[in-house]
Design a protein around this nucleic acid. Structure first.
Length: 415
DNA sequence: CTTCCACAGGAACCAGCGGACC
DNA sequence: GGTCCGCTGGTTCCTGTGGAAG
C-alpha cells in the first residue's frame, strides 16, 4: 500500500515535467494583476469618486453593478489598494473593510467583521444585532477615520434578509462626529434596486458604476495578458486561447470562467505530460470543471437534496421536464426506500430552488391553464454526470438503479 | 368572461444548538 | 444558572396567480 517509490515517481515526474506553468497563481480568478485590460474607464471613474478622502472629506456612496466575472471586485480592490498607499503618503486617515456578503451571510456577521477590522473583538454569537452595531459605532467614532466599507455580493444578503443593514449604515454618519463612513456596494444583480427602500437607494447610489460583460475579443486579451505571466512561452496554442474566450463569452462574458478554464486546461495538459495546451485540453477542462461543480455541490448538501436530484434524474428518463408534484411523488418513494422521513412539499420547493441556484437543476414557473401552475424542472447537468457522481457513494448507488414504480404509472400525465 | 387547477412562495412559528452576559 | 440572543432547518397556514377550459 504505502510504497514510497510510487510517490517518489509521481513527484519526480511532476517536478520534471511541469514545464507549462511559470506561475499557476496568476491564473486564479482572485489574483489581482497590476493591469486590468478593458477596465480603464471604470478605474478612472471609481478613482475620481474615491479621491476626496485624500483630502480628509468623505467620498460619495457608490453602487457598482455587473454580472459575475466582469471585474467589479478586481477593479474595486485595485483602486482601493492604490488609494491606500496614496493615503499613507499624504497621511490621510482612511481605513477600508472588504466584506463579502455571501460568505458573511447575515447582518450580525457583517457588523462583526466590520468591527473586527477596527480591532474590536466580537463574539461570533450571543449578542444582539443592536449591541454589535453599537459597539461598532463607538469603536469607529474612536478611530477618527474615514471608513470605507465595501460590501461585495450585496444582493445575496438583501434578497435573504432585506435592506435593514443598508439602512443602518447609510444613516450611521448622522450619529458620528469624528469619523465618517462611505459605502461601496457591489451587486451581481442589476435588478437589485427593485428590492431597496427608496430612501436607502437614494443615499446609496449617490454614484453608480456599471460593468458591461466582456466580449470574446476582450476576454482573449485578458487571457493573453495573464497567460504571459502564467505560462511559459510557446506552451499555449492559439486555438486553446480562442476557444477559452469563446466559451466564456458565450456564458455572459465571464472572465472568471475563462481564467478557470485556461488554468484547468493547463493542468490537464500537464497531467498528460504534454508540452503544449491544445483545444482538446480545454474541452476536457470544461468537463472537469462541471464534474467538480457537481461533486462539490453534492458534498455540501443534505440527503434530501440528493434525493430530490435523484428524483429529477429518474423523471428525466421519461421526459425532459418534471413538475414539482411529480418530483414529490418520486421523492416520497425514494424516501421510503431509504427509510428516511419525508419533508413537506413546501420544503421541497425551496430545496429545488437551492439546487437551481447551484446550477444543478433548472426551474421555471409556468402556467398550464386549467391544469394548474407549477415549476417545470429539468436537469442542468448531464445524466451521465449524475450517474457517475452517485455511483461513487455506496449508500446512494442502489437508488440510481432503482426503478420508481410511479414512473410507469404516471403516463397518464401526458399533457 | 369566469372558473378553477396545482402549485408558488410569504409569514409566522418552532426546536435545538452554541454561546454571551450578569 | 437563568436569561437572552442568532442561526439552521424545518413545519403549518396561508394567500396569490397565469391561462386553458368551459
Amino acid at each position: 500500500m504505502g510504497n514510497p517509490n510510487i510517490l517518489d515517481d509521481v513527484f519526480e515526474k511532476f517536478v520534471n515535467e511541469a514545464k507549462l506553468f511559470k506561475d499557476r497563481e496568476v491564473l486564479r480568478h482572485d489574483y489581482l494583476p497590476d493591469k486590468l485590460p478593458h477596465r480603464e474607464e471604470q478605474i478612472r471613474l471609481l478613482g475620481q469618486s474615491v479621491a476626496p478622502v485624500l483630502k480628509g472629506s468623505r467620498c460619495s456612496n457608490i453602487f457598482i453593478y455587473g454580472k459575475t466575472g466582469t471585474g467589479k471586485t478586481a477593479v474595486t480592490k485595485f483602486v482601493l489598494s492604490h488609494l491606500e498607499s496614496k493615503a499613507k503618503e499624504y497621511g490621510a486617515p482612511v481605513k477600508f473593510c472588504y466584506v463579502n456578503c455571501r460568505m458573511t451571510g447575515s447582518e450580525y456577521r457583517v457588523f462583526a467583521s466590520l468591527s473586527q477590522s477596527l480591532g474590536l473583538s466580537i463574539p461570533f454569537t450571543g449578542l444582539s444585532v443592536g449591541e454589535v452595531f453599537d459597539r461598532f459605532r463607538v469603536g469607529l467614532e474612536n478611530t477618527r477615520t474615514i471608513f470605507i466599507i465595501i460590501l461585495d455580493e450585496i444582493d445575496a444578503l438583501i434578497k435573504e434578509r432585506g435592506d435593514s443593514i443598508l439602512y443602518e449604515l447609510t444613516r450611521i454618519n448622522e450619529a458620528l462626529q469624528k469619523s465618517k463612513v462611505a459605502l461601496i456596494g457591489i451587486s451581481n444583480d442589476l435588478r437589485l434596486k427593485e428590492f431597496l427602500d427608496p430612501r436607502v437607494l437614494s443615499s446609496l447610489s449617490e454614484e453608480e458604476l456599471v460593468f458591461r460583460p466582456y466580449d470574446a475579443a476582450e476576454l482573449r486579451n485578458i487571457l493573453l495578458e495573464r497567460s504571459r505571466l502564467g505560462f511559459f512561452e510557446g506552451t499555449l496554442s492559439e486555438s486553446a486561447l480562442s476557444i477559452c474566450s469563446a466559451l466564456a463569452a458565450a456564458e455572459h462574458g465571464d472572465a472568471r470562467r475563462a481564467l478557470d478554464l485556461l488554468r484547468v486546461a493547463g493542468e490537464v495538459a500537464e497531467r498528460h505530460g504534454e508540452a503544449k495546451v491544445t483545444e482538446d485540453h480545454v474541452r476536457e477542462a470544461e468537463k472537469h470543471i462541471e464534474h467538480n461543480k457537481v461533486v462539490d455541490a453534492l458534498k455540501n448538501s443534505t440527503l434530501h437534496s440528493k434525493l430530490v436530484l435523484l428524483s429529477v434524474y429518474h423523471l428525466s428518463k421519461a421526459s425532459s421536464n418534471a413538475t414539482t408534484g411529480e418530483i414529490y411523488d418520486i421523492y416520497s418513494e425514494l424516501c421510503g426506500e431509504t427509510g428516511s422521513s419525508l419533508l413537506t412539499q413546501r420544503r421541497l420547493g425551496t430545496l429545488i430552488n437551492e439546487l437551481d441556484a447551484l446550477g444543478l437543476l433548472n426551474s421555471k414557473v409556468v402556467s398550464m391553464g386549467r391544469y394548474g401552475r407549477t415549476k417545470k424542472i429539468r436537469l442542468e447537468i448531464s445524466r451521465s454526470m449524475v450517474k457517475e457522481v452517485f455511483s461513487a457513494d455506496d449508500r446512494l448507488e442502489k437508488l440510481i438503479k432503482y426503478e420508481p414504480k410511479l414512473l410507469s404509472k404516471n403516463l397518464r400525465t401526458s399533457h
